[in-house]
Amino acid sequence: MKKTKILAVTIFSAIIGLVAIAADHIDAPATQGTSADITDFYAFQGEDTNNLVFVANIQGLLSPTATASATFDENVLVEFNIDTNNDNIEDLVIQAIPRDGKMYFFGPSAPASPGLNSFVNVSATKSEVAITPYGSNAIVATQNNMKFFAGPRDDPFFMDFAQYGAILAGNAPGFNNPGADTFAGSNVLSIVVEVPKSSIGGSGTINTWVEAKAKQ
């Protein structure tokens, strides 16, 4: 991380008075502030209700100044995991990994083996989208009946996290009304994928989670 970015992040954090973060922002010491820190995960029905949308956000609490220089790490693989038979073991994965200004996507496909270590499944359905630069309109790719986006977005998470911290620390009896959104005015790096439901189980309930994995 460049010094200017560290400075910007530090100043920004000081301004909004943060100590530690939810929803999964800066959740653990080993990932905190790294390019493999997942801040949030969403899964919801698309505008076309035949589709499901997955969102993974990483590198949270980017100030507008820091956002321009924030980049996806080419050594970090982001993996959407999909369990279709309720054993909490992934049956399908969608892999996202950046290379030279593009985000490449593989899947949905069965992983070579489930668990903590992954290879990029280059024989799976391959799609790609140019990473949207800060300040540009969203670049969206439609390939293989799926839609793809990668780039900076407003952090969609909202919470009075500062007050929650004050309550836990014993410095406040409860929340304020109105509360203050600790994440207002901050950005994240987002990966958004919209896939046909038919490609991830079709009907019923899936269990899903997102992982960040670093090249060994």
């Binding site: 929803a23 970090v76 992982e211």
Partner: peptide, 29 residues
């Protein structure tokens, strides 16, 4: 384009705020 290598898990998330709220500090990783 080179996609080779082994990628080892660093972070994961399903529901919001679970690790932050329910996991004790020493166990978060």
């Amino acid at each position: 384009t080179d996609f080779s290598g082994t990628f080892v898990q660093k972070d994961q998330m399903g529901r919001p705020a679970v690790n932050t709220v329910f996991v004790s500090s020493a166990s978060k990783n």
